[in-house]
């Protein structure tokens, strides 16, 4: 079965990103395909590599990056939501005249059409948020 997942809250404040991660991992472990994970609203904050949680806490951003590299997961951060919240990749930084970028490995910035496409292409779309 082909799943897609939408994450609408940032890391640490709300459990949504944790639950989405555990669900995605379990789906992959069960042999399902995960077509895309789409980050929207404050969920785009899951995509910054500047996160530095204390040693004894989980690293939510790294966890997503590692899952992406292990399973060639498509982690997409919504460009409009990302621009509002200061999540930028090198292209976006250049385009908007910013002095640096902060996108984490395995994440890419793209448009809302990627979410609609995920809804069309996948058998199930699950939303995690507040």
């Amino acid at each position: 079965m082909k799943f897609s997942v939408m994450v609408n809250e940032g890391p640490y404040t709300h459990q949504a990103s944790d639950t989405a991660y555990q669900f995605t991992r379990a789906a992959l472990a069960a042999g399902h395909e995960v077509f895309r994970v789409f980050f929207y609203h404050d969920g785009v904050n899951n995509g910054t590599r500047m996160t530095t949680p204390p040693q004894d806490d989980r690293n939510i951003v790294d966890r997503w990056s590692e899952l992406a590299s292990e399973h060639e997961l498509d982690l997409v951060v919504c460009v409009a939501a990302a621009q509002r919240r200061g999540i930028v990749d090198a292209d976006e930084a250049k385009r908007n005249g910013k002095d640096g970028d902060n996108i984490a490995p395995g994440f890419r910035i793209s448009g809302l059409g990627q979410l609609i496409e995920a809804g069309i292409q996948s058998d199930r779309l699950l939303v995690f948020g507040d």
Binding site: Y40, H41, A80
Partner: peptide, 19 residues
């Protein structure tokens, strides 16, 4: 909260997909 505003943006973009 921002949900209504950004939700509407999804609907407007999604309209192009002719679903």
């Amino acid at each position: 909260t921002v949900y209504a505003h950004e939700g509407l943006e999804v609907v407007l973009i999604g309209a192009a997909f002719e679903q």
